[in-house]
Structure formats: C-alpha cells, structure tokens
Computed example of a mutant assay.
Amino acid sequence: MTHHDEEAAVRPPALAWVRRHLGADERIVRAEALLGGSTADMRRLTIGTPDGGTRDLVLRTFVDTEHAEDWLNREAGALTVLTGTGVPAPGLVAVDPTAAHCAYPSLLMTHLAGRAVLDDEGVEARVPLLARQLVAIHALRPAERPREYVALTTADTVVTPKGADAAAWTAAIGVIRQPAPPYEGRFLHRDFHPGNVLFDVPPARPTAARITGVVDWAATSWGPADLDVAHCSTHLALLHGPAWGLRFAEAYEEAGGVLAAAASERLYWRVRDGLACSEEVRSVSQPWREAGRTELTTRAVEGRLDAYVTALMDALG
C-alpha cells in the first residue's frame, strides 16, 4: 500500500476493518489525506479491483471522540435515508461509531467526484445551484425523522469582533434573547455550505459548474428551513462578501423554497447563525486558507462577519 504522505497513514485496526468490507480479491493500494475537514480526518482509499481497475472509498475518522458516536450514527442514518432520493450523497459502506474495530470512531463511504469550490470566480453561477440543491434536501420526507435541531449559541456566548459596530451587535444579540419563532419542520443538512458541496467545474467555463455531491451529514436534524439557509448565507458572506450572504435567501425562494413569512422570524434565524459563527471564526477560516484563500485571515473574516451582521440588521431589523 502506498501512502501519499505521513498524514495519509491508516492505523492497522482500521485497515483490517476496511478490508473486511471490500469485495473478493480487492485490496487497498493507496491512501491520500483529504484537506478541508474541521471535525474529522478524511482519507481517500484507492481500492484495486480484480479486473485491474480501481475504485475509491473515503474513510472518515474522529480522533476527538467526545461527540463521535452521535455524529457517526446520525451520518450513517442520513446516508441510508438519502439512498435513492436523487440527492447526490455518498453511499454508506460501514460504520464503527464506538471504535469497536478501529482505533477511533470511523465511517467508510463511497467517494464522490468533484471538489469544493471556494473561489470568488463563478460564485454568481454557483449560488443558484446551491439554493436548488438545498430546496431538494428540504423536500425529503423520511419515514423516521432525525432528531430535532440544537442551537448552542446564546446571547451570553457571542464573541463580538474587535472594532465591530457595537450598536448593530447589541441589537443582534437582543434578537436571539427572544424565544425561537414557531416553524414548520424540514429535513436539514444542518451544515450546508460551499465547503460541503462538491462541484464539477470545466476549467475554461466556471459558469458551467454543476453539483456532483453533498457531504458531511453528521449534523442532520429536523428543524426550520431558515436555519440551513442562514448557515449557508453566513458562509457565503464570509467567503465572498456580505452581499452574497444576503443574496442566498433570495436564490432559495427563487428555487421554490419557502422561508418564514415574517421579516422578524427570518431575522432571528439569520442573526442566530451569524452570531454562532462569531465563536468559531478561527476554526471556520482555517480550512479556507489551507484550500488557497490565504487572504481570509481570522481578522479579515471577523471584518466580513461584522459587515454581514450589520447588513442583516439594516435590511431586516
């Protein structure tokens, strides 16, 4: 077995576990570390097939095991639900949520073609695609609902960036002190953003991009469509500028999605997600820099977050 680098090395117990889920005469011929994951280590495993060809699997490993069992059970359940729905998600091969077989809790799934695209170029073409894909996810009605969403951020845990618009942030924090608005539940990805969507982008035609997959279903929940829309909006605002964060909700409705009717209710969900991001700017922005967006320093992202929260309060507050 050939390793791309030291980080790609797979521990022997995991190798043995993976091999038990391969076909007859199949073998692992290569492991490659995948960048971009913030909660788990990701490795692409190239599998040699008896006919001389290859196929790829992805091994997702949680070294931090605090929430691993819950996340992996949720992801395995979501991938099972998504089979045959038309939503382009990985196929579940096997899961070891308690590390009964592997050194750490792990999940093995099929590999999807495509890549996450974080560049500014072509964003105007990708935003409608993201919106249509999210509408399709929210249209799913599984026989067994996933668990209700959890929102951990509170008014007292928000981290106001240095130099932020104090009045806007005080008003925004006041918004989430209020009870959550009533909502009609939907099947949520709960971490839907450009980093978890794979695209095929023709090199000479970035506007001809198409979605090939949606990954990272570990936070799948049941809750308001506004919450998923808010999360993607925040990420778009931080990656491409506040205007794109504001634009995404419009694109979602243009694609047939339904959001809360009252402006105050929409504001609640969008502000809640923006303020939640204030607590994890470093962890959110680091994978972006590793992927080539080196200008998105923690300070730069904090500045965009401030501008976005201020724009939300101006537009909807």
Rank of each mutant, 00 (worst) to 15 (best):
V81S: 04
L82K: 07
G84F: 15
G84Y: 15
G86P: 09
G86N: 10
A89P: 11
A89S: 13
A89L: 12
P90H: 10
P90I: 12
G91T: 15
L92T: 02
V93E: 04
A94P: 09
D96L: 02
D96Q: 10
T98N: 08
T98H: 09
T98V: 13
A99P: 09
A99H: 08
H101T: 07
H101S: 13
Y104K: 06
Y104N: 11
P105Q: 03
P105F: 06
S106Q: 07
S106I: 00
S106W: 01
S106D: 06
S106L: 05
L107Y: 01
L108Q: 01
L108W: 04
M109Q: 13
T110K: 11
T110D: 13
H111W: 14
H111D: 14
L112A: 10
L112H: 07
A113G: 15
G114H: 05
G114M: 02
G114N: 06
G114Q: 03
V117Y: 06
V117H: 10
D119T: 15
D119R: 14
D120T: 13
E121P: 00
G122W: 05
E124W: 07
A125W: 09
R126P: 10
V127L: 15
V127P: 05
P128E: 10
P128M: 09
L129P: 13
L130S: 04
L130E: 03
A131Q: 01
A131E: 08
Q133S: 15
L134Q: 03
L134R: 01
V135K: 08
A136P: 05
A136W: 02
I137N: 00
I137K: 00
H138S: 07
H138M: 07
H138A: 04
L140R: 04
L140H: 05
L140C: 06
R141Y: 01
R141H: 09
E144H: 10
E144A: 14
P146S: 04
R147F: 08
E148Q: 12
E148F: 01
Y149E: 12
Y149K: 10
Y149Q: 12
V150P: 00
A151Y: 02
A151V: 15
L152P: 07
T153F: 00
T153W: 05
T154Y: 08
T154M: 12
A155V: 06
A155Q: 03
V158I: 12
V159A: 14
T160H: 04
T160M: 05
T160I: 14
P161V: 01
K162D: 15
K162I: 10
G163C: 05
G163A: 06
D165G: 07
A167K: 14
W169Q: 03
W169E: 07
A171M: 08
A171F: 02
A172V: 03
A172W: 01
I173P: 06
V175H: 04
R177Y: 01
P179M: 03
P179R: 00
P181C: 08
P181S: 08
P182G: 09
Y183D: 05
E184C: 10
E184L: 13
G185L: 06
G185E: 13
F187E: 08
L188W: 06
H189N: 14
H189M: 07
D191N: 07
P194R: 00
P194M: 02
P194T: 00
N196M: 07
L198F: 12
F199L: 11
D200L: 11
